[in-house]
Simulated scan of single mutants.
Amino acid sequence: MTYRLPSLNTLRAFEAAARHLSFKTAADELGVTAGAVSQQVKKLENSLGVLLFRRLPNGLLLTSEGETYLPAITQVFEDLTHATEQIAPDINSRKFRVGLCPAVRGLLPANWPHHNENLRRHVRECIETSDIDLLFDNELDCLIRPGGGPYRDLTLVVVTCPQRAHDLHFVCRPGTAECAQSRAILADLAQHLACCGK
């Protein structure tokens, strides 16, 4: 059977942009530029022959077609993740080696990440560093730093930090931003940074 489907990159761009209703935030998640996300979404819309977004001066709105399409596409990505984890369980069972920039250390509990039992299940080691090359050398699984870049083909997730002028950057290898380890680390970071901002 031949499948006539849009490219995976266009679908990823649509799904992220639809979740955030923002090309910029989707771009931060995917580690590309907002222009690249916009172009991928436009390419998808052209291939489908329908508009998925209404582009407004202050953001995006899903069209009725976009609202119908999003849950199905989200489910497809969840199914792909599940299928991958079934044949490659180490993706979500291996503990991460985390790099933590010294400038970020003061924003978190003194014993982070060992303060949280859930994180202890996902983090093997945490070292203080801001060296992005350790990710390229596979010596780290992710790096948390106060901005920076460029990150080339690495994945960037921006973590909002209310008490700082700049948000934090969670940088990881492609394909690992949605795994259980990354989700646990990001959730804990968001919780602590939100509390510090109050």
Rank of each mutant, 00 (worst) to 15 (best):
M1A: 15
Y3L: 13
L5E: 14
L11M: 13
R12L: 13
A13I: 10
F14I: 02
E15I: 05
A16W: 03
A16S: 14
A17T: 05
H20L: 03
L21Q: 11
K24E: 02
T25W: 00
A27R: 03
G31T: 00
V32G: 00
V32I: 13
V32M: 05
G35T: 03
V37H: 00
S38Q: 09
Q40N: 11
K42I: 11
K42D: 13
L44D: 04
G49Q: 15
G49W: 15
L51M: 15
R55I: 13
R55H: 09
L56W: 12
G59Y: 02
L60P: 01
E65G: 10
E67K: 15
A72M: 06
I73K: 06
I73H: 05
V76W: 02
F77L: 04
D79L: 14
L80V: 11
L80E: 12
T81H: 12
A83V: 07
E85N: 15
Q86N: 08
P89N: 11
P89C: 11
P89D: 07
P89K: 13
I91T: 03
I91F: 07
N92S: 13
N92H: 10
F96S: 10
C101L: 12
P102E: 10
A103T: 04
V104E: 02
G106D: 09
L108N: 07
L108Y: 10
P109A: 09
W112Q: 07
W112P: 01
H115I: 08
L119R: 02
R124N: 14
C126E: 14
I127L: 15
T129R: 06
L134E: 04
F136W: 08
F136R: 10
N138Y: 14
E139A: 07
D141H: 03
L143R: 07
L154E: 06
L156S: 06
V158Q: 04
V159R: 01
C161E: 08
C161P: 01
P162C: 01
A165T: 09
H166A: 00
D167C: 00
L168D: 02
F170A: 01
C172V: 08
C172K: 02
R173H: 10
T176N: 06
T176P: 00
A177M: 06
E178K: 10
C179N: 12
A180I: 08
S182M: 09
A187F: 13
D188I: 05
D188T: 07
A190W: 00
H192E: 08
A194C: 00
C196N: 14
K198M: 01
